[in-house]
Design a protein around this nucleic acid. Sequence first.
DNA 1: TATTACCCTATTAAACTAATAGAGTTTTCA
DNA 2: TGAAAACTCTATTAGTTTAATAGGGTAATA
Lengths: 136, 136
Amino acid sequence: MLSKKTKYGLKALTFLAQQEGKKPVQISEIASAENISQKFLETILLSLRKTGFLGSKKGKGGGYYLIKDASEIKMADVMRVLEGPISMVPCVSLNFYKKCEDCPDELTCGVHKLMLQVRDSNLEIYRNTVLSDLIS
Amino acid sequence: MLSKKTKYGLKALTFLAQQEGKKPVQISEIASAENISQKFLETILLSLRKTGFLGSKKGKGGGYYLIKDASEIKMADVMRVLEGPISMVPCVSLNFYKKCEDCPDELTCGVHKLMLQVRDSNLEIYRNTVLSDLIS
DNA sequence: TATTACCCTATTAAACTAATAGAGTTTTCA
DNA sequence: TGAAAACTCTATTAGTTTAATAGGGTAATA
């Protein structure tokens, strides 16, 4: 299941991508437009800023804004920041690889084999989809 | 992330699929071969029996066995029983559909759009992969 | 310089996961 | 026929994660 954090983060990003120009949007505006708890959204936007997706401006007239063009923001990068590993098991993860303790041999493991396929196809989607693709 | 329940369930199924003939295998044998807590495995095998994947035989010489041929057991069905919905959000689920409370319109929702793609590609894998494909 | 709005830490309730414990029931085989 | 083997079921629990809340601190702008 997709976490609320990821869902809200994606919604906030698409909301910002739909703004005219690059002028900052207040957290409260995004929160009420997308039905998100404002405080929860704060932490999400903060992490997106720290990871280089968003910029922020303080003081009156401040808020958050996209740092890059929406067509340059890949879902693969966003998902890794918000949701964590794209793989469903650590032993098939590119960025978060970890051997399974209980599994003696990855090459003969059926779960490994299946999850490798799933990772490949999901990765292809996330790599080939950019933020602007989510806007209709 | 894939739950341990699903991982163990898949491992148990592949173990049973690799047996010669259809003679029952004891829980304890599967548990020790695959490094799974026996008690936990009990509940997993029980649910696989109740959902028509496994048969069981009580008494001396009893155990669990596959009811169908491994080439007829689709991952899509197994995953739904063990892991639950294949979709990452309920609003794109075929078998567990539920409208998102916070989302006013699915058609313009970016998350919906993205997760629809993910569901489609995962579903294709799970539908086209059968238990015997997991054995090397 | 006061206001606005971001920034940060800590806490908490709820839900879920994984595992454990222990007793009960059915079946089989000697 | 009876005892052992093996499945079946219920309940409990520790640990983790998630989602949300609270409250104050800090920086920047008009």
